[in-house]
Design a protein around this nucleic acid. Sequence first.
RNA 1: GGCGCUAUCGUCUAACGGUUAGGACGGAGCCCUCUCAAGGCUUAAAUACGGGUUCGAUUCCCGUUAGCGCUACCA
Length: 503
Amino acid sequence: MHPEEEAEPGTAGCGHADARCYTDLSMIRVRFAPSPTGFLHIGSARTFIFNWLYARHTGGTMVLRIDDTDVERNTEASLNSIFAGLRWLDLEWDEEYKQSERLALHQKMAEAIFEKGLAYRDFTPAQADEGERRGGETWLCNPGMRELSREESDRRAAAGEGFALRYRVPREPVRQIRFADGVYGEQVKSTADIEDFALLRSDGMPTYHLASCADDAELSISHIIRGQDHLTNTFKHVLIFEAAGATAPQFAHLPLLVAPDGTKLSKRRHGPVVSVTTYRDAGFLPHAFVNFLCLLGWSPKDDREQMTRQELVDVFTFDGINRSNTTVNFTDEDPFDPKAVWLNGECIRALPAEELASQLLPFASAAGFRADRGKMRRITPLIQERMKLLRDVATVADFFFVDELPAYDPAELIPQKGDTALARAVLEKARAVLAASAFTHDALDADLRRAAEELKMKAGPMFQPIRVAVCGRKNAPPLFGTLEALGKETCLHRIEKAIEKLR
RNA sequence: GGCGCUAUCGUCUAACGGUUAGGACGGAGCCCUCUCAAGGCUUAAAUACGGGUUCGAUUCCCGUUAGCGCUACCA
């Protein structure tokens, strides 16, 4: 996972001082920093993908950092789910870190900021500040704490009183904090509107803001690409970088993914459709999924929609990213965005049959079919263009695997403008013809068409009873290939059964 | 409440002052055809509203409205 030890870039320099190093493409370092508090969310997956694309586009480095400073909410299951999801996407990262292993660094930065007088101890009990904040004006800080003298503060700390460490947001005089966002452009906010946020919790653990900035600085992250929900947090981060004497990275915020009801996608409200593993388990191909996510909030600006991984890497830039939220289009009946499904169908059709067959195997056994490689290989060409998700194998190929066809309406056997007698005549003729056929696709084609002529019938009405007899339904893959794949014995048996049904 | 961001067909988007407002998915229709698919062709469908600026606004500015985000000792 970390192939390039020597990648330790620019030694001391890059994260600090020298802005020019950011224009050196080889120095570009981006990170994806999920917190293991839930399943891998499709919005997170998209953020990961955009980071990855930018890294690969620029020849930079992709860092994966697990932001696990929230001890209360972290779970092992979540961590596993995130890794499973990321591995499934099949987009490799270059370096990997765990924030919980870097606590000393965070403490050190907090300490340094405190020593500079840019942060202060807040002894207000954690729970006490619920009610007051709601009311009228913007809450900026807890009363009294910001003004505490260093002596008083040290005394209370030494006495063992608990405290959180807060950033002392400069407000005398008020300052305008600004940064240039790669997507949203110039951003400005007055410190009069930024509250004194926490750096350290009373248990000594760093908050997200601190840990994230400390690590971004230390890992020489050059570009932070993340969800737009962090856009306003970024002012705080700029402040932290400033206090720590580090140059802030470049920022690029991504428009949020929202549900059809307009709210941010969430597991609680919208269920499993927000989880990457749901797509995997339904039989999306990783690349189709990646391709789909790329089209949400980003465009190559030409009319291309289906793109290979390499094309995506080549064409990806920040100015293709738009600024408004994008809706993932799903419903209760249909949990997947139609465009994602369509793209997946396209990818399935583009797959070599051999490859598709092996992808299909696990889905076939999940459906309860006893499928071996050889059989699947024979069936695949017949169903390939009839499926959109890999799991469709269960509904589209069932009759290839069952011993006995499930019950079907005998009326289905009767062709349009025909009757029972005609259906029976067709099936009896088919029985005779098939019994004598060489049973290859081409032989079956010739034999059955000749049979139709002999019955003075057109192919359509002739083939329908046979198809239904053999597949148990009217809609199925092309007849000759299907018969061939099924084999003579099974076909004759099923036709026999169908004739019985017509008695 | 405060602060911020956003606003083009149902959905994803293109058009960085001048287009019959383009493409894709989905829908409808036709063709192909042994059914279903796939494929091909055709079609319906959008600039939130009100003011400016300009010879000319989807595009720039202001306001309204709506949506979203942040406002935690969550991330």
